[in-house]
Amino acid sequence: MAANSRKTGVLAALAAGVMLLAVYMIFFYLPPIRDESGAVLSDSFRIFFFHMPIAITSYLAFAIVFVASVFYLREKALKWDIYARSAAEIGALFSFLVLATGSIWAKDAWGWYWIWDLRLTTSLVLFLVYLAYLMLRKSLEEPEKRAQLAAVFGIVGFVSVPLSFFSIRLWRSAHPLMFGGNSGGSGGSGLEGTALQLTLAVNFIAYLLLFAALFAVKVENERMQEAVDEKRYGEFEEGI
């Protein structure tokens, strides 16, 4: 356990260091950002460098929930349940941050906080599925049953996210890629040039490290919780 928490500590310190560098790069290293026609974009675009890595990380967390759920149903091993619930909680946080950073930028750039755009709605569905997953966990008491039912929902929820992406694409076909250039990744407008790509890469590493550190802390916490529960219920049964 001690060696484990030391590793977690190193990971957390590393995440903090890279995060500082990433924030520094966004605000001081980045030159003014220009779009294809050469006009300088508003500084609010800098939030994109937070936004996109967080979004990718939240999808990654969701994939972990799915994989861990499948393995839990196959093997019934407690560790998979611990991985699933840890990833789900962090994923819920990250997917909320995606919506928050996206809305702040959208207010400045488009004038509205919210538009029923393809990616926005998909992120919203992701967030809602996470919330539902956590709600389901909260309302079940028996640990094994909770793990099993949550795993079932983890699988169903994961399948629904890509499907919502397609259904909204159909719905909004009248608005072909309105904002595709900006949120489409490094291939989009204004993202040419090494300074921008470097900043984006550093931010990606920062958020992946942050996720890894949070995940490690959470998994460790859950393990300790399980150990405490085992002790407590063990004593309870002895008491009878």
């Binding site: 629904s160 259904s167 909204i168």
Partner: peptide, 27 residues
């Protein structure tokens, strides 16, 4: 079937169902 053994099943079913149902409601 999933919410059968939960404490608040009538409340939980819509919470779980609606996000997953979005891809069928829109089309």
């Amino acid at each position: 079937a999933l919410t059968l053994s939960t404490r608040t099943r009538e409340l939980l079913l819509p919470v779980l169902l609606l996000p997953v149902l979005l891809p069928v409601l829109i089309p």
